[in-house]
Write a protein that binds this DNA or RNA. Structure first.
Length: 670
RNA sequence: GGGCCCGUAGCUCAAACGGAUAGAGCAUCGGAUUUCUAAUCCGGUGGUUGCAGGUUCGAAUCCUGCCGGGCCUACCA
């Protein structure tokens, strides 16, 4: 409703100006939010119109105010120096719409969206960096689904790469385990932890004797032959670790629909199909001499302008330093090549498909499918989508751009335009946090503001460990507050709080900010945190419980007359309560902003889920202030009491809604 | 060398195609509870937005140049 009002306001202002100045070339009407409620609910800066209309901003603003006429939902307009048109919403109109949860008709959006996230190498336990990825991705999925879009969630599994090979080497060459012994180990409750330690040992083993690296190459090669014993072991390990990753993410209510694996991209020859098209279209060129002799290369994304710059004639030749090797001189294809083929499949441009079989069933009966060479007959239709979003950290932006350019080069400009690298910065550890974990730091490291997590070194905070700590910490608090509750009830509440804290923590930073991880901040339940927002909802719920009224149906049953609403919302000192209603009205507006990114620029800026966190916090903060100032159940004026209850119900509804989009549920008590 | 990102309060972060007095949380100091449970609220302290120019009615935001930091830049994945 808020967004609807904003758009209509901009439209009407533009029409008004066009009527006054026919033929004038006008800039877009920008609608902002004034710094304070007293000023109004919308603010339109008039400065940009001064020059084209050859008139003073204040004069133009006054003219608009006088001539625009009645706009539904808008109560009044004021001209404010040095050149703003401040607009006040018709408060009772908006409140009535909000209480009834009326929404303007949703735009019809078409086409399935594919979101790829997590994509953790299946060779060790997930860590906090993976948590950021999965939480961002999962929240984005929830945003899209809230907006009515159809979404498939994919988690790409690189089960044939060096990282898996390294752990295979660890089992077979360092620990000298048999296949049966490894199989037994995979049944450990936290087999991924075992691999975490082993992986770090393998790295040391390589360091100790460079000869050992030869084993890695042999193993890597052997994994590609599905008939080999090594491949069977690799599959055993990667599948077991993958299962653990799904369990870890399920703890956070993160689910997937389909797990495409590199092994199938290999064995179903996706690359061959892509290779032919890439050669035909000239995206790939063969180098017959120089550094990359014998390789198939393409232009590195982001280098060299499309046309000829200095020296480079348009002969299809690419300067050596701008070359990206896609096929090595020994004929094998690198990661990017496979990724190009995979993305052609995503858009339905490859002409091949995976086989599918069920892999994992969530407690809610939802099935997660996995790729396989010979799959089940009946399966959902994956791929062939209209838009894709890849949640991958910023370090891989060049590889992502290369894939996009390959699609463009193949003539699939439309697909390339609907390919978004949902980029974000990494999670690193503060030096203090690293020290707490027992790592000895060099003086150089101590002076850094953060230190990168390294799976190879076994340096990092494991996802399950962090979650365990959060639950334990919340449990302690719940135990002392609610000793009367049963143990399972207390565990359940503590778990919800822990998830709330973790998901909020990962979402409150904007994407391009490196998270310097610190236990103190992450384990905090006070201030700008998930539990703060959850607690606000619990408070709201408890008011209704005490009142003996059902919060969810209260708003349906009740109705206010416009004069009553106006009395409560526009009277003396009502700004503070109005602010709460106004903020509540913004939920769908905020969700829209999260999805489309902040600017409507080209190229588009990826989505930003952090605005959700800001919105939730603002709602909770306003509510807590309101809660403290207005005793509700003891309000003597019955009509006013109903209005205050309605205020609580609306805020509560919007808080629950927004938290749900963030993947955060609310416990019954805290 | 080239590409991308960052530099805002003691710390961690915000700031809506450039807009009204740059805001929060944490920390710190001082207050608030016989009430819908204080995982809360109110108030104080704390800023030359890395530096220097430029663009304009107006710059944390755009441009240029410095300074400082991070990531990418392999016939690794």
């Amino acid at each position: 409703m808020y967004r609807y009002l904003e758009q209509r306001l901009a439209q009407r202002v533009l029409e008004c100006l066009e009527r006054r100045h026919p033929g004038a070339v006008l800039p877009a009407v920008v609608v902002e939010q004034p710094p304070k409620v007293e000023l109004g609910d919308f603010a339109i800066p008039i400065f940009p119109f001064a020059k084209p209309l050859r008139s003073a901003p204040l004069k133009i603003a006054e003219a608009i105010r006088a001539e625009i006429g009645a706009v539904e939902g808008i109560a009044e307009m004021q001209v404010a120096p040095p050149g703003y048109l401040n607009v006040k919403v018709d408060r009772s109109w908006m409140a009535a719409a909000l209480a009834a949860d009326r929404k303007p008709a949703a735009e019809i959006s078409s086409g399935k969206i594919l979101v790829e996230h997590s994509s953790i190498n299946p060779n060790k336990a997930a860590h906090i960096g993976h948590l950021r990825n999965a939480i961002l991705g999962d929240t984005f999925v929830r945003l899209l689904r809230y907006a009515g879009r159809e979404v498939d969630i994919q988690n790409y599994i690189d089960n044939t790469g060096v990282q898996v090979a390294d752990v295979v080497v660890g089992f077979t060459h360092i620990e000298k385990k048999s296949r049966a012994e490894i199989e037994a180990l995979t049944r450990l409750p936290r087999f991924d932890y075992y691999c975490w330690d082993l992986y770090a040992r393998v790295s040391q083993w390589y360091e100790a004797d460079k000869q050992n690296r030869q084993v890695r190459l042999e193993t890597l090669h052997a994994i590609e032959d599905p008939a080999s014993e090594t491949a069977v072991i690799a599959d055993l390990i990667s599948t077991a670790v993958l299962r653990r990753h799904l369990e870890t993410m399920d703890r956070l209510d993160i689910e997937y629909d389909f797990l495409p694996r590199e092994s199938e991209i290999l064995h179903l020859h996706f690359w061959n199909a892509a290779f032919e098209k890439l050669k035909e279209s000239g995206v790939l060129t063969f180098e017959s001499e120089g550094k990359n002799k014998g390789c198939w290369v393409m232009r590195r994304a982001g280098t060299g302008k499309a046309s000829t710059t200095e020296g480079t004639e348009n002969t299809g030749e690419i300067k050596e330093e701008d070359q990206k090797v896609i096929v090595r001189s020994n004929g094998t294809v690198g990661y990017v090549g496979k990724d190009i083929a995979y993305h052609m499949w995503k858009f339905g441009l490859l002409g091949r498909d995976f086989g599918y079989r069920k892999f994992y069933r969530y407690p809610n009966e939802h099935d997660c499918w996995i790729s396989s060479v010979d799959g089940e007959k009946d399966h959902p239709h994956f791929g062939d989508v209209a838009e894709i979003y890849n949640v991958i950290d910023a370090r891989q932006s060049e590889a992502q751009n290369t894939v996009i350019e390959a699609l463009r080069g193949l003539g699939h400009g439309e697909a390339a335009d609907h390919y978004t690298h949902f980029s974000y910065e990494m999670v690193a550890l503060t030096p203090r946090c690293a020290a707490e974990l027992g790592y000895t730091l060099s003086d150089e490291d101590k002076s850094r503001s953060y230190i990168e997590v390294s799976g190879r070194k076994g340096f990092g905070v494991k996802a399950d460990d962090l979650l365990d700590q959060l639950i334990a910490s919340a449990k302690k608090e719940v135990d002392s507050r609610h000793p009367q509750l049963s143990e399972p009830e207390r565990v359940s509440i503590a778990t919800q709080i822990a998830i709330g804290a973790l998901r909020y923590f990962m979402l409150k930073y904007t994407r391009q900010s490196v998270i310097a991880f610190d236990f103190k901040d992450a384990l905090s339940f006070e201030g700008e945190t998930g539990p703060y927002a959850q607690y606000a909802v619990v408070r709201a719920s408890s008011i209704f419980r005490k009142a003996g009224v059902d919060a969810d149906t209260f708003l349906i049953a009740i109705s206010f007359s416009a004069p009553d609403l106006a009395a409560y919302l526009t009277g003396e000192g009502s700004d503070e309560i109005w602010e709460l209603w106004l903020a509540s009205a913004k939920t769908s507006y905020v969700i829209d902003q999260c999805i489309s990114g902040r600017y409507k620029t080209y190229p588009p800026i990826p989505p930003e889920p952090a605005y959700l966190a800001k919105h939730v916090f603002q709602l909770a903060q306003l509510f807590n202030t309101f809660y403290h100032r207005h005793p509700i159940l003891s309000e003597p004026d019955e009509k006013r009491k109903q209005f205050l209850l309605a205020t609580v119900a609306v805020v509560r509804r919007e808080l629950i809604r927004t938290l749900a989009v963030m993947g955060i549920s609310v416990p019954p008590v805290m």
